[in-house]
Design a binder for these strands. Structure first.
Length: 503
RNA sequence: GUCUUGUUAGCUCAGCUGGUAGAGCACGUCACUUUUAAUGAUGUGGCCGAUGGUUCGAAUCCAUCACAGGACACCA
């Protein structure tokens, strides 16, 4: 480590600084303003006659991003979290020899410094800081990436996110937006009277969704636990317990493939609302989006890639209807197993054998409809076979009171009136067990403890889950989930690491 | 998991049909007190992702592997 020539050079400079009495890792910061505040407070300097006010004095800190030395004067661009500032450093305004022997020789791009001085506007019209005191706070011994192109290699950007954040201001912006989305989401539901709760991340049975879990082991108890694939069943137990509106924002884990929209750990919000139905969820979802757009200052005609998503146009359509009106599948080809299979054959599409009617309708939807849903669309009335936790429709027992929300061709939310009939829930689980036995390894697990909870009576409830990562992707116009996760999952670079981890 | 593209200096990238490696930025040295990716001069910097093969000779051709990007499959 640190055998690179440039790193060695910089380590040498850090030593020289120390010898000269300047701690290269000082924590003696006297900063009294941020760059953003400095620029705001001194915006009046430009209107002054001599374009300076030597009576004002500020101390700002930041990382050197650009350094232009011109003999006895230098321009340095420093950046803190709030912004970028040009500071003007001259030999004659610093202690004897400091400029020549310390600043010019041992200070370079990447170092974190603190400077004091007065505001002035340069000949080219840039509000800057005229430096009269200069402190090195932190010496960077590794050089930063190239100042103009920065770091673009995706592998470096994901593995060394800190470098990405140093070099790319828009990346910082994306993660600030992500943080705001989560904060606004929390505030939105709290303001509606929802209670934020925390339920287990390690489950004895991985339930609440159809997905493969990660397994871990509890040594003291000598038992395996599953990292949760969804918090659903625990949140519903809380509704049984008498809480009437709860939500949880946290991580879920699914042991499946990784791609532009899937990371093994991802963040969701799930909320459950007693004495409500999925119809109420449609309304609160529209309100939620309105709230987000308002507080994030986003246009309701939201650009996403080469699409424009119209958030003034929420659409609601039953799944079966969407197959025909949006997917272009003839209506008579959607109603029975045989007709669907025959239609798929004409389209040269093969699907897994032994699918039931509901599953086949789900296939048709995935194949012909999903990617066409650009404006926010609530797809309702899902077949009961693919909705093991949703309440049946009173009018039609083959379908459930459920919707999924699609935006820009992608699923953003899943919601339904909750199944609260314990006998029905038990038989749905049994149906899932049959599916599992006949080869569907993603069928829902049996959870008798949950059925027992329902047996004490769960008030009629509606519940919804929203994928926060995909939502943030949509709102920040990012097209890979890795670009909205600070530290996305990556394979280890060295084989040895895999061996260690498996031991 | 399959297909496909990539991996060359700290970073961004050239390197043709094989002949022992090149630029810009950064860094060193020199000049320069209002620059904006400052400028001019000059210099240092490389196990060409790894391992095998073909060849007199491989960054370049072939194979395998690793990692990454993209697409597909899987995945509500």
């Amino acid at each position: 480590m640190f055998d690179n020539k440039f790193v060695q050079q910089r380590i040498e400079k850090a030593k020289l600084l120390k010898v000269a009495g300047f701690n290269p890792y000082s924590n003696n910061s006297k900063r009294n303003t941020t760059i953003e505040k400095y620029l705001n407070v001194n915006s009046d300097i430009a209107d002054m006659e001599d374009k300076r006010d030597e009576k004002r004095h500020y101390i700002v800190s930041g990382r050197i991003k650009l350094l232009r030395v011109m003999g006895k004067a230098s321009f340095v661009k420093i950046e803190d979290e709030s912004g970028m500032l040009q500071v003007y450093v001259t030999r004659d305004n610093l202690p004897e020899d400091f400029y020549n022997t310390i600043f010019k020789k041992n200070i370079e791009v990447g170092d974190i410094i603190e400077v004091g001085g007065f505001p002035f506007v340069t000949g080219k019209g840039e509000l800057s800081l005229h430096v009269d005191s200069f402190t090195i706070l932190t010496k960077a011994i590794s050089p930063l990436p190239e100042k103009f192109h920065g770091v673009t290699d995706k592998e470096i950007r994901y593995r060394k996110r800190y470098l990405d954040l140093i070099m790319n201001a828009d990346v910082r912006k994306t993660f600030q937006t992500r943080s705001k989305v989560i904060s606004l989401t929390r505030r939105f539901f709290e303001d509606k009277g929802f209670l934020e709760v925390e339920t287990p991340m390690m489950h004895p049975i991985a339930g609440g969704a159809n997905a493969k879990p990660f397994v871990t082991h509890h040594n003291a108890l000598g038992i395996d636990r599953f990292l949760r694939i969804a918090p659903e069943l625990y949140l519903k137990r809380l509704i049984v317990g008498g809480f009437e509106a709860v939500f949880e924002i946290n991580r879920c884990f699914r042991n499946e493939g990784m791609d532009a929209t899937h990371n093994p750990e991802f963040t969701s919000i799930e909320f459950y609302w007693a004495y409500k139905t999925y119809k109420d969820l449609i309304e609160i979802t529209k309100e939620y989006f309105q709230y987000l757009f308002e507080h994030l200052n986003l246009p309701t005609q939201l650009p996403y890639g080469d699409m424009v998503v119209n958030f003034d146009n929420f659409i609601e359509i039953p799944l079966i209807e969407s197959l025909t009106t949006i997917g272009g599948v003839p209506a008579e080809s959607c109603k029975t197993k045989e007709s669907i299979l025959a239609y798929l054959k004409t389209q040269n599409i093969t699907v897994k054998p032994n699918l039931n009617l509901g599953q086949l309708q789900g296939e048709l939807f995935d194949l012909f409809v999903e990617e066409k849903l650009i404006d926010p669309t609530f797809i309702t009335e899902y077949p009961v076979e693919i909705s093991p936790l949703a309440r049946r429709s009173d009018e039609n027992p083959a379908i459930t009171e459920r919707f999924e929300l699609f935006i820009a061709g992608r699923e953003i939310a899943n919601a339904f009136s909750e199944l609260n009939d314990p006998i029905d829930q038990l038989s749905r689980f049994e149906g899932q067990m049959e599916a599992k036995d006949s080869g569907d390894d993603e069928a829902h697990e049996m959870d008798r403890d949950f059925v027992e909870a329902l047996s004490y009576g769960m008030a009629p409830t509606a519940g919804q889950g929203i994928g926060i990562d995909r939502l943030v992707m949509l709102l920040t116009n990012e097209h890979s989930i890795r670009d909205v996760l600070l530290f996305p999952a990556m394979k280890p670079i060295h084989k040895e690491e895999i061996v260690e981890e498996s031991e």
